[in-house]
Design a protein around this nucleic acid. Sequence first.
DNA 1: GCAAAGTTGTGACTTAAGTCACAGCACAGG
DNA 2: CCTGTGCTGTGACTTAAGTCACAACTTTGC
Lengths: 227, 227
Amino acid sequence: MTGAEQDLARRLGQFELFSMLPADLLLRMAKSSVLHSYGAREEVFCEGDEINSLLLVLEGDVCAVKRSSDGREQVLAHLKAGDLISLAPLLLQKNACHTESGRASHPTKVLSISLELFHEIAESSPEFHRALQRCLAGRLEQLSFLAASLSLQSARSRLAAFLIRQADQGGQPAGITQEEIAAEIGTVREIVARLLRDFARAGWLERKRQHLVLKNRAALEEEAQRW
Amino acid sequence: MTGAEQDLARRLGQFELFSMLPADLLLRMAKSSVLHSYGAREEVFCEGDEINSLLLVLEGDVCAVKRSSDGREQVLAHLKAGDLISLAPLLLQKNACHTESGRASHPTKVLSISLELFHEIAESSPEFHRALQRCLAGRLEQLSFLAASLSLQSARSRLAAFLIRQADQGGQPAGITQEEIAAEIGTVREIVARLLRDFARAGWLERKRQHLVLKNRAALEEEAQRW
DNA sequence: GCAAAGTTGTGACTTAAGTCACAGCACAGG
DNA sequence: CCTGTGCTGTGACTTAAGTCACAACTTTGC
């Protein structure tokens, strides 16, 4: 038993999903797992691939995306530290496949854990079941919101909402290209560019290449509320 | 103990979600529950209302919808016999509110069960937890698909896909208005009318007022595959 | 420092989607 | 049987969104 494995086990125990698991189980997970590292924009998994291990995001951020034949993408979820990848297909059947593709949006570390161990964990603790449920329920709410906003809101409102969300999380929206913003809000790069220009002209923000500074949050919030 | 209650308990036990529960628990559910009936297009619950009991669809079909301020609707899910209503918010916090509105799309019976009893059930059986997870996971996959198709597919393709789905379930798509189809596929009534005309002109279906007869399923399927 | 690759800005254009208006149809209930 | 009410069909129009083309600007790597 190495110190690194104990360290990893401790980190696992800090994730909400695993916080109720006994130390020996965490240690077994740490021991039997394999670590993968990905650079920004690198493909982590691919729609259609068979799921042959449980993938857990250790750090970074993986976007779950669906692609159209003409190369457009829609981001459906962000999987961050402590999140499990392709959880839904995994729970629905044995020998499941990824139903989305995954791309690291930042440098990311992903832990690969054997499926047998996952099923053992799943059986072990009712608390773990509750945590899984909460996790699924949260994603369900997020996706409901996304689907509704794609259907009922304009690209303009979705962009405003996205900017607000970004600002709330990571300080200022930075290090993200217009192409990526487009994939988040369900449109194309040019539309994002034009809308950002509109917002800038209205004095709501300043644009400095991948670094947007919000100047009038209230106005953006109002725009985001339009349904 | 009346015969009706025993009968209800038996029906509950036939739903996948409750099939693992002991007979006495099913009977307690049946006894303490209240039955509500709704006509077609009647409102069952409303976005923003507090969730003060567990709602279970006994028979019929409830659409979970979100509305925009200008009166457009997007259907996000269909809750059928054996499905629980507003499950996600319920699992996420105490004193939760409905995050969508619900409208019966056919005559529908809904059972109202006390939240305390629900929590007791939830604790009782690990099998129940697994069933809940599968239920959540299934809805997650459906919503991912919906969000992706709203973003990446044309209204034309979404309509074709919808017609195929309808045909696969309930025989022929019947008893549904163009307005309702529009809410399903995320567009407005006139677009549905025009697209149906196009399909009819191409000989892919026949339109007879709420009764569509598919004539060329292969062509529709191909249209539905366009991404 | 320069070439290459990626990112952004923008005008001109096309097209899908949505809006408006209104006529015809069907069928439910007096 | 007629009359209201809701559903459908459709043309004309507007607008949001998407496409294309291209110039300019940044960053990266050699």
